[in-house]
């Protein structure tokens, strides 16, 4: 069984809340990725979202844009990402998800991408610039190579579209908290509550909330009306702050613990 499916069975049965941190592959340095993924897992991540850097990340705010830029300067390629994850996959038991814009995947070769993802143990894929209408081919390949697909719901999504997106998302739906790019913001909860209540009454599958979730308090409040959270920019900011600290993996582990603490 796909590792993501397993986790979300637990979510459905036991009302478990999932915590999903995001990191940009090859950031802040090439060698960081092999240290940070295990650190995130040790800190209590239920899944890890691995960002594949792209030169033109239109859905990302300044923090993740800058990290992608640095990663590309470090020389990150999909080939390198596969090689790196392969080395650590046996030591990391939790599901790993790719967050990638479409173009690097197209250039790598769609079938080759899915084949290699399966081979090294990638469990899921989220493409922020691929709406359901354009997803036929990708969905077919994802099924063939047993990679779960995750699609986004946004505050502008109608109830009819929500059902379509739910159908295409294998185990869970990713809800974009507010209209906008990735990044931290203030006053998240009061802004998103009515929208999350609408989702709750329209979705049968579990859903997690991302974009703007940045503090333990956000994690607590948002997870009360969802099945979990994704934290991206806040983690990248934290890594940026301690990028030259020798204890970076340990620090990241503890940061994840702290962010996740309300989910006990």
């Amino acid at each position: 069984m796909n590792r993501i499916t397993k986790i979300f069975q637990d979510v459905k049965k036991n009302n478990k809340k999932v915590f999903i941190p995001f990191i940009t592959a090859g950031y802040p340095r090439l060698e960081s990725t092999a240290e940070l993924i295990p650190a995130l897992a040790d800190g209590g991540a239920d899944l890890v979202e691995i960002g594949v850097p792209f030169s033109d990340p239109m859905a990302d705010g300044p923090t993740i844009q800058a990290s992608s830029h640095t990663a590309l300067e470090n020389g990150v390629t999909l080939k390198w990402i596969f090689k790196t994850i392969k080395k650590i996959r046996n030591n990391v038991k939790i599901p790993l998800i790719f967050f990638s814009y479409l173009n690097p995947i197209l250039k790598y070769g769609l079938e080759r991408f899915f084949k290699d993802s399966q081979k090294i143990g990638i469990d899921g894929l989220l493409i922020p610039d691929l709406p359901p209408e354009e997803s036929d081919e990708i969905k077919k390949l994802a099924r063939r190579y047993k990679i779960n697909t995750i699609f986004l719901v946004s505050p502008t999504t109608s109830n009819n579209r929500i059902r379509l997106i739910e159908e295409l998302s294998d185990d869970f739906v990713y809800c974009v908290s507010v209209t906008g790019t990735t990044g931290t913001r203030g006053k998240l909860y009061s802004e998103v509550k009515p929208y999350l209540m609408r989702l709750k009454s329209n979705l049968k599958k579990p859903y997690v909330v991302g974009f703007g979730v940045s503090t333990p308090e956000d994690v607590k409040k948002i997870s009360e009306i969802s099945n979990g959270v994704v934290v991206g920019s806040a983690i990248i900011k934290f890594i940026e702050k301690f990028k030259n600290n020798k204890e970076l993996p340990e620090k990241v582990k503890n940061y994840v613990k702290k962010l996740k603490s309300p989910l006990k």
Binding site: D129, L130, P131, E134, P155, T156, R161
Partner: peptide, 12 residues
């Protein structure tokens, strides 16, 4: 061609 954009923009 096509419409390769984040979900937020599709309805718009």
């Amino acid at each position: 061609g096509g419409m390769f954009v984040p979900e937020t923009l599709v309805p718009i």
